[in-house]
Design a binder for these strands. Structure first.
Lengths: 349, 349
DNA sequence: TTGAAAGCGCTAACAA
DNA sequence: TTGTTAGCGCTTTCAA
């Protein structure tokens, strides 16, 4: 293969403008200390020649790589893609992440790694060595993984942790799952429900516990708490069905159920239909996540909307800001989630 | 910010193994002409130190960047993400593209560019200068854009064009839309339909014409062709509705409609319901694309499934193969699309 | 079969 | 305020 070389390099610009390489570099990097007229002259040459610096060379020179790595769970991401159920967590991450990166002249590179893998450190180290990213975005369930967090810290790389409150380094961003669950629960309480079941997600995800907390505290505040109304799933359809069956089998079954993600809520809806329970007349339902499918369910499901794009956008912004001047933020950034009501909730029978 | 340097470089490995840099480089790049024992010794050092070459440095040294750029339509991609309708073209591209890249030690970087932009050349050139990708994957509607194709050819970059038959350089891959449309049409003909309407996509996408061709030829073969049965949309829900209304307003309306994408099919379903036409009893429907939403429609819609992951995977493989030895493939690679029948087709009333 | 030299495009450190 | 020098980590010459 023909060896490709940079078409227009800093040298060409320097020659064209009649200045040194360093001056061009200063203009490109908006360094202070360049006379306006000089700057204009260099910029003119840059525009004329269509010069764009090579990030590889920039990185080699000791500057940034202008690359941000998004670390996603390999297994889950691939499973979601293969399942074709419309889960758009990844897409929303791209929406917020890519666009914000682009605004700042950065690129987002996605890397899938296995949380359960014992060579996760090696994988991450390899990605860092190969790519030399300026920052890393950790998504659940990586966000709270101490192995990853400590490694990143040791490498001196700026990183954001989406959906984790675990102590430690890194910029933390959450969507206030506790409050969201409380909002959903309060909505049902206001409708008159007293027996409100909750289907939790797996413990591996920190947010699972937060959602349970929100539900429990709202129930306690209303004086109707009962942990028999809590069932646990693993975010899968099958587990949601099992959990729903468990709740409906109670001596005093719930008149409303909140499930920690769409798949489990859909499974609950399905089970309810099989048992001739009409939603929302006999059973109210609130879901978490709000992926596209639940809008097409019958009835369309009310749900807590996760502002994933917004959170990812902020993660990128904060990482880039951190690059300039080490942030000392220690409190997590919170982006509120909201309840979108559709037609799956009504007063209890 | 602390200036980060490569933790383990080729020098460390060379020192550890007691050989020259060049020998390490040869082992890393699997160059021939290294004695097995030497190779083993170097490899041992590499493993021991956890050495991974920096792609920035590799690229600077004149070798590959191990980066492949996927070029997507900016406007459409963002619109799909924002709409949250479950459109998973992008996800399927990532599934096929990322995983195949990973298998070969490559990374996939996504770049969104505006087709309609007059500075598309500048944008692309900038991305190429910054990233120095070894290859580029063009997705519709970029795949047939002569500006892009010629620019890439001039730059000497390997590239694949998904969904374009336009003559010119680049590896072409198609999903045989013509055949797919014919298959859908034939299925309906076999059920006894004679008035089969077709809602085409916008001319900007080459595949729009191919699908029309497949439908028309199947209709002609059956001796029932009638171009009054052809309506044109732009892939949007609204345009699908308009097109469907046009077809249903015919003196002799269709008993079946094939629409060129899911949104337009859904719009047709919606309009049919409003007019008290029961699908499939009064009107059969076949969709194109098979995004998640149509499986949840009532009834679930039969559809042509686009093998996007498979096509993208092949695109990556072919680009990487092309890097080694310039391919001389001139005939397009065809990955067949298949019809998945659900409950939206039946014999005509 | 191995090693030494030069250079890729850029920036940091220093000097002028 | 500008220019010069050295070097980043790697690969391609070329020589041994």
């Amino acid at each position: 293969m023909a060896r490709r070389r940079q078409a227009v390099t800093i040298k060409h610009v320097a020659a064209d403008a009649g200045v040194s390489l360093q001056t061009v570099s200063r203009v490109v990097n908006k360094d202070s200390g360049v006379r306006p007229e000089m700057m204009a002259r260099v910029q003119a040459s840059i525009d004329k020649l269509g010069y764009v610096p090579s990030i590889a060379a920039q990185r080699m020179g000791g500057s940034r790589s202008y690359l941000i790595l998004a670390l996603n769970d390999r297994e889950r991401t691939i499973a979601d893609w293969r399942a074709r159920q419309g889960t758009d967590w990844f897409d929303q991450m791209m929406l917020g992440g890519m666009l914000t990166c682009a605004e700042h002249g950065y690129r987002l590179i996605v890397e899938l790694v296995d949380t359960h893998s014992d060579h996760i450190e090696r994988e991450l180290l390899a990605a860092i060595a190969a790519l030399q990213p300026d920052g890393v975005i950790l998504t659940p369930p990586h966000s709270g993984n101490p192995l990853i967090i400590n490694l990143l810290e040791a490498q001196g790389i700026s990183f954001a942790r989406i959906g984790s409150l675990t102590d430690g380094p890194g910029i933390r961003l959450i969507m206030d799952d506790t409050r969201a669950a409380a909002i959903a629960t309060e909505h049902l309480l206001e409708l008159g429900h007293r027996r409100i079941g909750f289907i939790a997600g797996p413990a591996e995800y920190e947010l699972s516990a937060w959602r349970v907390d929100g539900w429990r505290s709202a129930m306690q505040a209303a004086g109707v708490a009962d942990d028999d109304l809590l069932a646990v799933g693993d975010f899968s359809h099958a587990s949601g069905r099992t959990a729903a069956a468990q709740l409906l089998a109670l001596a005093e079954p719930p008149t409303a159920i909140i499930a920690s993600n769409d798949q489990m809520t859909l499974a609950t809806l399905e089970l309810a239909r099989e048992r001739n329970l009409v939603v929302p007349r006999d059973l109210s339902l609130i879901s978490f996540d709000d992926t596209p499918i639940i809008r097409l369910a019958h009835p369309p499901l009310s749900a807590i909307v996760q502002p994933i794009a917004e959170v990812t956008a902020q993660a990128v912004s904060l990482i880039i800001a951190d690059l300039g001047a080490r942030l000392t933020t220690t409190t997590p950034v919170t982006v509120p989630a909201v309840l979108t009501t559709r037609n799956s909730t009504s007063p209890p029978p």
